[in-house]
Design a protein around this nucleic acid. Structure first.
Lengths: 225, 225
DNA sequence: TTATAAAGTTAGAATAATCTAACAAATTTG
DNA sequence: CAAATTTGTTAGATTATTCTAACTTTATAA
């Protein structure tokens, strides 16, 4: 059985593998805000539990068991976030810290019941996919709003950054997942875009913001559940 | 900030103080299933944090801060149990283990929201009182069913033991909190009692069971909420 | 291609929570 | 009350997680 600390290492390794591919010790250490020797010794102990393949000076890779365990923790995290928002009526900007703790609870029935109550959601409140019980994570094919050309209509379906500050910014502009956005124009100089949606016929969003909004061009595609 | 381990010690000290008064090291150690030296060293460290008064060879007493902290953990535990039963529809025999883990989550808003959703319950699903935010625990004046005389009508309001086995036994007899029980007769030989309630005109309960059922003789008294 | 920088490793120490073994104090009891 | 028992304490060790300091290996770059 993994300790909460080990679970956090596995989660970080899973997420790094999904975004980078190759994982180096320093990336792991900086992601977890621990020193290199700390990460190094934990890596050795994760190997001993058969969750990680490790060879001196080589990139790190999760074993199938490590990947499965990591996915199950991420599943618990994302189900919890969804539960907090949908059932307990928290804002999407308030749920990360609590979920970060609840993901370490050992109680399969608890999370299964959440899943049931939520109707087996495919994604968390920020649009990140929820791995299934097997640990399989559906790969999403969204693109950043910043890559969309003027005139196109897109559906806002996920965020590539979910910091509370960013989420509060989105709240302040009335932006939420599922919205249909129309790209009115783009500014070559600073990558800002003018976007229309609902009661906002022309809202200007900075390049930084547009990079973090993940959208789907086929408006008819799967609505978030 | 207390670690989960420290929180478990404080909880045990609080509960022992409420049932015994004087707390000895060995009681604490056996309650927590740790060795005497382990309890001894933890007791010293709890003293350093000002949660416990400790003098060599003297009984242990919580400080006001220790009592407040312990009550807040018990509050989280009992609110969680109530939430699991009322909102998530778990049986009262399934909730202890999960609550034992969730009580260590640091997220006041999470528990406040539970409390709201539940309508500020006074007791958990087993009838144990929920301490208020100040850490005050309402003293209940229930008596064991075993002390009730034949002919009397009482209301079942709490349990003095909530093991899963006992709860499953109660389920099997259709016994739940809030029920009105009529004591039909008592058996002097083995302290068993014949009890009537709902569709059970005459159910025989062992002395062991009757000792663990806490009742109130005034049927008109506060219904459980 | 060698020197410098970056990344990774080892050694050694600290803290938290636990244990067993050995001993001391307090309590119970014959 | 003194012997026996229970209770509490100390000492010393173990495991997990973390650190800093010192060193080595690999990668970068002049």
């Amino acid at each position: 059985m993994a300790s909460p600390t080990e679970e956090n290492y596995l989660k970080a390794l899973f997420n790094l593998a999904n975004s980078q591919g190759e994982i180096t010790l320093s990336e792991l250490a900086s992601r977890l805000e621990v020193s290199l020797p700390t990460a190094n010794s934990m890596v050795k102990s994760l190997q001993k539990s058969n969750w990680l393949n490790y060879e001196k000076y080589k990139p790190l890779t999760l074993t199938p068991e490590g990947r499965r365990l990591a996915a199950s923790i991420i599943r618990k995290h994302r189900l919890t976030e969804m539960f907090l928002v949908d059932v307990m009526k928290f804002g999407w900007e308030e749920v990360h810290e609590v979920a970060e703790q609840i993901e370490h609870i050992h109680a399969p029935k608890f999370f299964d019941r959440m899943d049931e109550m939520l109707g087996h959601p495919a994604a968390d409140p920020h649009g990140s996919p929820i791995p299934d019980i097997e640990g399989k994570l559906e790969q999403q094919s969204y693109v950043p709003l910043s890559s969309v050309l003027p005139g196109q209509k897109v559906q806002l379906l996920a965020l590539s950054n979910s910091s509370a500050e960013f989420l509060e910014f989105l709240n302040s502009r009335g932006l939420s997942l599922g919205l249909t956005l129309t790209v009115i124009s783009t500014e070559r100089f600073d990558q800002s875009m003018v976007i229309g949606y609902l009661e906002h016929p022309s809202e200007t969003l900075s390049g930084k913001v547009c990079e973090r909004l993940l959208v789907c061009v086929q408006t008819a595609a799967a609505k978030i559940t």
